[in-house]
């Protein structure tokens, strides 16, 4: 039973079936087998958050997830954000507010922030910090990332009446 077994997943909305060995990590499945290289390998031990994906909507460390245990799950990677090549409001805000520098942590931040705003459309600065506190960024000091998330919240809201 160390042998491979079929795994059924929906990745970015596309159902797929793969034969996967028990010790296959979800991160490796995404990057190596499915060529979804937007999910990054930063520490590979669950600290840095670069490998964050949404697993049934929940931001999850793909480096600490056995692929086989994602059976039946819906996985969203950075490649799955936005539709028809359009950026989401959050992605646009990251671009416009200078929230990416080297970009290596960016996919993880975007997925964590996407889930945050879905559950909580108007978080406070402190709530954003908490929600993103599993993602390390070494370039920005987080400032522009937090600003971008706040800006995306504003664009998602009706304009304030004068």
């Amino acid at each position: 039973m160390t042998a491979s077994a079929p795994l059924h997943l929906k990745v970015n909305g596309v159902p797929l079936e793969r034969s996967v060995p028990p010790n296959r990590i979800l991160l490796d499945l995404l990057r190596e087998d499915l060529n979804l290289t937007g999910t990054k390998r930063g520490c590979d031990l669950g600290t840095c958050g670069c490998c964050t994906v949404l697993l049934d909507g929940v931001p999850t460390l793909s480096c600490l997830t056995l692929a086989r245990l994602a059976e039946g799950a819906e996985v969203t990677t950075i490649e799955g954000l936005g539709e028809h090549g359009e950026l989401t409001a959050l992605q646009r805000a990251f671009v416009e507010h200078g929230a990416t520098q080297c970009g290596f942590c960016t996919p993880g931040f975007l997925l964590a922030a996407t889930a945050l705003l879905r559950d909580h459309p108007t978080p406070s600065r402190q709530e954003i910090q908490e929600a993103l506190s599993g993602n390390l960024c070494r370039c920005t000091g987080y400032v522009k990332i937090l600003e971008a998330v706040e800006a995306a919240c504003r664009t998602g809201l009706p304009a304030p009446s004068p």
Binding site: R31, N35, L36, T37, G38, T39, K40, R41, T77, I78, E79, L81, G82, L87, Q91, F94, V95, E96, G98, T100, Q101, G103, F104, T106, P107, L110
Partner: peptide, 23 residues
């Protein structure tokens, strides 16, 4: 001017290629 970085769109979509992404 406050200009977004030219590669930002690639980076927010996971399309920017780092060495480990190459095959």
């Amino acid at each position: 001017r406050r200009l977004p970085l030219v590669d930002a769109a690639l980076k927010v979509t996971g399309r920017a290629e780092y060495t480990d992404d190459l095959k």
